Simulated assay, not measured.
Amino acid sequence: MGEWEAGLDDEEAGAVMRTVTRQLKLWREAAGLTQAEFGAAIKYGEELVSSVERGRRIPRPEYLDAADEVLGAGGKISAMKKDVAEIRYPKMVRDLKNLEEEAVELCAYNTSVIHGLLQTEDYARAVFNAHRPALTEDEVEQQVTARLARQEILDLMTGRRVFSFVQCESTLRRPMGGRMVMRQQIERLLEVAQLRNVDLQVLPLDREVNSGTGGSFRLLKLKRGTTVAFSESPLSSRVTADPKETTVLDIRYGALRAQALSPQDSLPLIEKALGETRT
């Protein structure tokens, strides 16, 4: 099941799981099937069926589809797939994803790696594989899946959302995952930079002033007029809507945009970095 293990300390996920597992058990018992018989019918082991019904494993979409067909639920079980899929991500990732979806403007400065919304799958995997202490393979895949799911908001069809990214030049020079992975990542940056609702700027390493030496952060300006700041540190990430703090970061971001190359002037530097991955 991998990334579909249930987080027992996540109240929101727990509430969804209790509803889903209760329905699965009721439908199975109404059909007169034991866990072993039901598992054989949907081609899953009895132990897995038991883990799902006890709320210890999150059922995958194919599990729910098979259960719906075998139990004759007429789509009622399959309809739970969307809610179930969402809770496989850590709560902080879900909360951040919800904030990003509500935002009308997203501003982000990154000093060590390419911003998560801009990362390719292989680049994201390299980032998480670099964590120390090391993450397990399942934890890496969980984080990569969650990160890629957040990138849906970059689609122009999602609305009039505006994105502004300032990347330190060092993020273009650090070959995360190797030369081929980095080449594909920089190609992705050039693609995203063409979107009408995206401004992508690079802060060159030769600038004498860099207002972002304190680390990476992002600002989310929500529809209701609130600004939420998300800052990162080696051991934790922090979300705040305190105007005293968000105002400081808003001023800092304005300074970073002024210090960086314009979106148009940033493209040649990104293209130069791409060329260097081919030599």
Rank of each mutant, 00 (worst) to 15 (best):
48 L>D: 13
259 Q>M: 05
161 R>Q: 14
181 V>W: 01
159 G>M: 01
90 P>E: 00
169 E>P: 12
224 R>N: 14
165 F>V: 00
276 E>R: 11
193 A>Y: 08
123 Y>N: 02
161 R>H: 05
76 K>A: 13
74 G>E: 01
140 V>Y: 08
173 R>P: 07
100 E>Q: 12
128 F>Y: 15
235 L>R: 08
231 S>A: 14
211 S>W: 12
140 V>H: 03
67 A>K: 02
94 R>I: 09
270 I>D: 01
116 G>T: 02
93 V>L: 09
20 V>H: 08
73 A>Y: 07
127 V>S: 05
23 Q>L: 14
241 A>S: 15
63 Y>A: 06
240 T>E: 07
34 T>C: 15
141 E>S: 08
202 V>A: 08
172 L>C: 06
10 D>T: 05
65 D>T: 11
73 A>G: 09
94 R>D: 09
100 E>P: 03
127 V>P: 06
204 P>S: 09
62 E>Q: 14
169 E>Q: 12
82 K>V: 10
205 L>Q: 14
206 D>P: 11
148 L>C: 01
250 D>W: 06
59 P>I: 04
128 F>I: 06
150 R>D: 01
145 T>G: 10
10 D>Y: 10
94 R>T: 05
23 Q>D: 14
49 V>R: 12
77 I>E: 07
106 L>W: 11
226 T>C: 03
100 E>V: 00
